[in-house]
Structure formats: structure tokens, C-alpha cells
């Protein structure tokens, strides 16, 4: 099959970008989308043109490195699928596809389809953890967790941090990403002691990173490759409200033991 690609090319963070059209000829419907880009890139190198930069690693849909917009949809048209697991059999011979990087103030473009998602790490640093130094843990079965709670926690924990939710959101909000971590840890008994601080600190970090606010558009859950639902956003809002009634602890500092 043949495809026509309009691809965003941008030399570096400071350069102006533009769309360039490429033809992907005689590609197999059994190829993954990224394998098709590999073929296009090999041809570009053959013609001494710079290959298209795109982020990828595991190509199994779990590392969260890959992702760009295909015709305006994050990770492309197939639901619950990262772009590395999207196969060309999803498209028709002769399709025209526009490939763009995630567009969000908090995710500056580094090159072509590659963006900087460091803001996600900083949200986790603000509270997306349970403080449990190695060596201090009780026996694993001493903590009972009802099966339905752990299953729900897992649904949230499945987030791969790809950033599709932000890219799809008209406000470029990171609410689904943040809510997934708040919910994963907040649903477990181990996560209770830090629950209030966690939600307050993570939401504050999200705001600092210049992500937009959530207005319940639901675009995020439509593109999430792990099909994480906005019910977790409701859970975050509930926790945030509850935390606002509780006294604030002094902020964590590097000097405290």
C-alpha cells in the first residue's frame, strides 16, 4: 500500500517548523506505523536528507516514549493503542496522513515529532510516591487489600506517561495523568498517610508547569492508550476537596530527615 505523509519538521527548539510531504511507497499492511517511518527514514538517509526524529523505544506499547498526532488524533485512530502498536492495516491504501508533535505549552518541541515531557517527572517529584525506604517494610501479606480496590488502583497505575491526554485536551491539562497517580496510590492502604499532601502538592506542581485547567471535555480518556477514565479525575477532585478541609502540614524540605 501507499501513503502520503505530511510531517512536521522542526530543526530544534528555537527553529521555525513547517510541514514537509513524503511518500511511503509499497509498505505492508502488517507493518507497525513506526516501522513504516523507519522505511521512510532509511530512504531519506539514502537521499542524504535528514531522517524524521520521533521518540520510541519498547515498541510494545508500554514504555510511553512514542506518540504524536495522526490527523489530529493522539496516537492515531485506533482506540487504546500507542502509535508503536498501530499497524498499517488500520489505514487504507492512498490515505493522506498529517503527523504533528504533541502541542502544549508545558511540552516544548525539541525536534520534529519529539517533545520535552519533563514536566510529568516534576509532578511525580512533588508527591507521586509512597515514602517507603528499602528495609523498613512489613511482610507483604500483613497489608490486606480488597481485590476490587487493587484492581481499580491498577487501572489507574497502568498510565504510561506518554502525554497523549495533554495533547488531546483543548486546555492542555495534565489532569488525567495526575489523577491516575493520585488515584493509584490513594486507593491503597499504604497510600493513606500521605494522601492529603500528595494531592495538594501534585496539583500545585501541575499548575506551576503551566498545564491548563480541566473542564471535563473528556478528550483525554478518548485517546488514552491505556483507556484510563475521567472517573479518576472526579476522584482527584474529591481528594483535593477533602484535603482542603484538613490542616496543611509544613512543606517538605531537603533538610528534614
Amino acid at each position: 500500500m501507499n501513503l502520503t505523509l505530511r510531517v512536521w519538521r522542526q530543526k530544534n527548539a528555537h527553529a521555525r517548523g513547517r510541514f514537509v510531504t513524503y511518500e511511503a511507497r509499497n509498505v505492508s499492511p502488517d507493518m507497525s506505523f513506526l516501522e513504516m517511518l523507519d522505511v521512510v527514514n532509511e530512504e531519506l538517509i539514502g537521499r542524504e536528507q535528514e531522517p524524521i526524529a520521533f521518540e520510541h523505544d519498547c515498541r510494545e506499547g508500554i514504555c510511553g516514549a512514542c506518540g504524536f498526532m495522526i490527523n489530529g488524533i493522539a496516537h492515531g485512530p485506533k482506540r487504546g493503542t500507542t502509535v508503536c502498536q498501530l499497524h498499517l492495516r488500520t489505514f487504507r491504501d492512498g490515505d493522506h496522513l498529517t503527523l504533528e508533535p504533541w502541542r502544549a505549552k508545558a511540552f516544548p518541541v525539541i525536534k520534529d515529532l519529539v517533545v520535552d515531557r519533563g514536566a510529568f517527572d516534576r509532578i511525580i517529584q512533588a508527591g507521586g510516591f509512597i515514602s517507603a525506604p528499602a528495609g523498613a517494610a512489613p511482610d507483604a501479606n500483613a497489608i490486606l487489600v480488597p481485590k476490587e480496590d487493587v484492581e481499580l488502583a491498577f487501572d489507574a497505575a497502568a498510565c504510561i506517561g506518554c502525554g497523549a491526554c495533554v495533547a488531546a485536551c483543548p486546555n492542555a491539562s495534565a489532569m488525567l495523568f495526575t489523577a491516575a497517580k493520585v488515584s493509584h496510590l490513594g486507593l491503597l492502604p499504604q497510600g493513606q498517610p500521605e494522601r492529603n499532601d500528595r494531592v495538594r502538592n501534585m496539583v500545585a506542581a501541575m499548575d506551576r508547569e503551566m498545564f491548563g485547567g480541566c473542564t471535563n471535555m473528556g478528550e483525554c480518556q478518548a485517546v488514552c492508550p491505556k483507556e484510563i477514565t475521567i472517573a479518576f479525575i472526579a476522584r482527584l477532585n474529591h481528594d483535593l476537596l477533602a484535603a482542603s478541609f484538613k490542616g496543611r502540614k509544613p512543606p517538605r524540605t531537603a533538610a528534614s530527615p
Partner: peptide, 20 residues
Amino acid sequence: NIIDQCVAQGVPFAREYGGL
């Protein structure tokens, strides 16, 4: 110790209906 450590960190391992 590893399993204890991971559970304490909140790793959502599969569980039985009794919570174990």
C-alpha cells in the same frame, strides 16, 4: 524482602478476594 518492599511502595500486585 523485595516483595515486602514493593508492596510497601504501593505496587498493585494481583490479590485474592480475601485481600492476600
